[in-house]
Nucleic acid binder design. Structure first.
Lengths: 212, 212
DNA sequence: TTATAGTTAGAACAGGTGTTCTTTATCATC
DNA sequence: GATGATAAAGAACACCTGTTCTAACTATAA
């Protein structure tokens, strides 16, 4: 596959900008003016190349019948409710039936669908404090959770330690008569406790961090 | 505000369907046929009503110049190019003019606009290896970068250490005649080097992690 | 009924728009 | 230099498409 020429990249970029700015695709003459191209036939020529490269698709004889093939972003986005905060010494918020209703929740968040991977019952928690650095999670991070009551061995989960009254994010391994909680950071030591002491609140499926 | 008539709702629905199916807006005659309307003027008449109701916006004298105003999640979404990997011992990929072109890049990623905050020149790097755990960044994470050549003190940045031939993510503080590189994890120790040894490759503005 | 606003039909116009054709220019390769 | 592929310029054609105009048809209220 040959590389796109300067002009072709300019055109693709212009279509992108036009589309997101105006909401409808540009005509050939829009592209001509917007990219300072001398003739409509030159635009046509390069659009055909862009189409053969799979960048766009064109509909013959239809004005503004250009479509960007980069899969429309809207399909790759999911909206999840942010139902509260998770901090070391405080109980972990548990989703209730009405928190699922994205429209009814005070705060929501849009995230790439890749992170969800078609899972149901996904919600988000804001991390407060630096107590979870051993899980490579910082103050202010947002963790994406899936609501489950049990996890497979090795899954990272939000765990409530009853006797310690502490919330933590660890990889969970159920062993013979104890539970091993392993930090994500392999440099840190694991931790053992009794099965009755742990309460699985949810499975961690992702982390989003915004750096100042 | 009067309610929309049956016909107007049908038209709005048709525009929506047409747009998501074809990728460009319908012409008046498309709507006419699609909704079994007898005359283009009837379509025009009802489109004007839809516009005055704020459902759509129209651009005069421009074919297919219809835009749906219902705020779609797509407005909260930005697409950034994933231009390569960042690993401890390998050079950091630097964006080139054509990598900016979202349409021309092999891999892209959709992320919530909140993470971008209107910044320009944003790209993404895939993290390889666990060498950046001290920055609370794990193997497989994706870091969002902004292309800058200099950063303010305290900013987390992708740094290339020339003599060590090593890429790293640290908070950068320029001091009198040395540069302090501070891990994001406050439990880890800072690191000093000469100003000539550091090459700022970009500013870290976010991290996205997918857990298994 | 009459009046009035809201809606529909049909047709025609003018400009927008995709397409195509011919000619010319550029450039690498033999 | 000859040659062929790639790229561009300019113009012209024919259809697409938004707009507009007139006339007719509803429905509701006076």
């Amino acid at each position: 596959m040959k590389r796109l020429s300067e002009k072709q990249r300019l055109i693709a970029k212009y279509i992108n900008k036009f589309l997101s700015k105006k909401g409808y695709p540009p005509s050939i003459r829009d592209i001509q003016k917007g990219c300072n191209i001398s003739s409509t036939s030159v635009v046509d020529y390069n659009l055909n190349i862009l189409e053969s490269r799979g960048i766009i698709s064109r509909h013959a004889e239809i004005s503004r019948g250009i479509r960007l093939l980069s899969k429309s972003p809207a399909e790759n986005i999911s909206t999840v409710p942010v139902i509260g905060m998770i901090a070391a010494g405080e109980p972990i918020p548990v989703p209730t039936p009405d928190t699922w209703d994205v429209a009814a929740v005070s705060e929501t968040m849009d995230i790439p669908s890749d992170l969800i991977q078609g899972r149901e019952d996904v919600y988000a928690l804001r991390v407060k404090g630096t107590s979870m650095v051993d899980a490579l999670i910082n103050d202010g991070d947002i963790v994406l959770m899936q609501h489950v009551s049990a996890v497979e061995n090795g899954q990272m989960a939000a765990v409530w330690l009853k006797s310690e009254k502490e919330a933590t994010l660890k990889k969970v391994y159920v062993e013979k008569d104890r539970v091993r909680l392993q930090p994500a950071n392999s440099q840190m030591r694991e931790f053992y406790t009794g099965p009755d002491n742990v309460e699985i609140q949810g499975k961690v499926i992702g982390v989003v961090r915004q750096v100042s």
